[in-house]
Nucleic acid binder design. Structure first.
Lengths: 151, 151
DNA sequence: TGCGATTTAATTGCGTACCATTTATATGGG
DNA sequence: CCCATATAAATGGTACGCAATTAAATCGCA
């Protein structure tokens, strides 16, 4: 018998992730940014220095073909700067502009608002987060069990 | 202090959902479908009859602006049929074609492969799924607040 | 009976995501 | 020193995902 989406672990993730973005949307609309842009800004706020596109991609598990246009929009919005690294011109260094740094204060209440929307305590949210991170790590682990093609 | 994406519950969902789709990708590539298309097919396989676009959207929490082009691609691929309901011509009824039904057998091993990739037992996967479903339901609940943490 | 309010799909425009490919730069080996 | 290889970013193409708009059908109620 077939498994309906509602019974699938994958669909719970897919669906919860979308629901989460819906909660973020009005908060981020007020800041003029999208959810992936908020993730990039959070990375830069925490990094406290310029990161390469590659470095941001490693944090967020996104590749340059996703990040390049996203970062260009953020640069056009005046939130970040993009400069070739003079030491290695293959790399593009992304740094916060003053406006990008200023947005951190505006965004300060967002996390508390999100947590409240989850209906979870800080501890319960952290516990669930860690379970989901562990799952994602196993899914990305190249030598995970169940070899369908490893004869 | 700012919260890095790696510490956010939202990002664990975002990231795990993407990781899950990467595990699905090679399996679904072999069937010639995408992950959202697999969700639509799973819905139709379980429903055992024609559903409206609206009905599919309620199952998957997607709206017609996402589903209409997706269903048109599936129709072009010969997996489903789309017909206006003669009783109410606003509605479009989506039904499996023979090829769409036949794909169910091809897709039968997929769920077991995915479960194995999670590294979780059936019971542990179901328990995590239920926690995430409950979270998503609270996030979608219009009258949510009650932060049990912030006094 | 008839007409406006509501409901439903489709359409449009924008922003992700990702694969495959291309371009530019750097580095290692002979 | 120069070529082969490796790496980073960008590009092109396809497919979601959603807000807002448009178009059509039905319902509500006088």
């Amino acid at each position: 018998m077939p498994l309906a989406p509602a019974d699938m672990l994958c669909f719970s993730l897919y669906s919860a992730s979308h629901a989460m973005q819906q909660v973020y949307r009005p908060l981020l609309d007020a800041l003029g940014i999208t959810y992936p842009q908020y993730l990039v800004l959070s990375t830069l706020w925490s990094a406290d220095g310029a990161l390469t596109v590659k470095g941001i991609g490693q944090e967020l598990h996104l590749d340059s073909s996703t990040l390049t246009p996203l970062l260009k929009r953020m640069e056009a919005a005046g939130l970040v700067t993009r400069r070739r690294d003079p030491k290695d011109e293959r790399q593009v260094r992304v740094a916060l502009s003053d406006a990008g740094r200023a947005l951190q204060a505006q965004a300060a209440p967002v996390q508390a608002c999100i947590l409240s929307s989850t209906g979870l305590s800080t501890v319960a949210a952290a516990r669930l987060r860690d379970q989901i991170i562990a799952l994602a790590d196993r899914l990305r682990d190249p030598d995970r069990q169940s070899p369908p093609d490893t004869a």
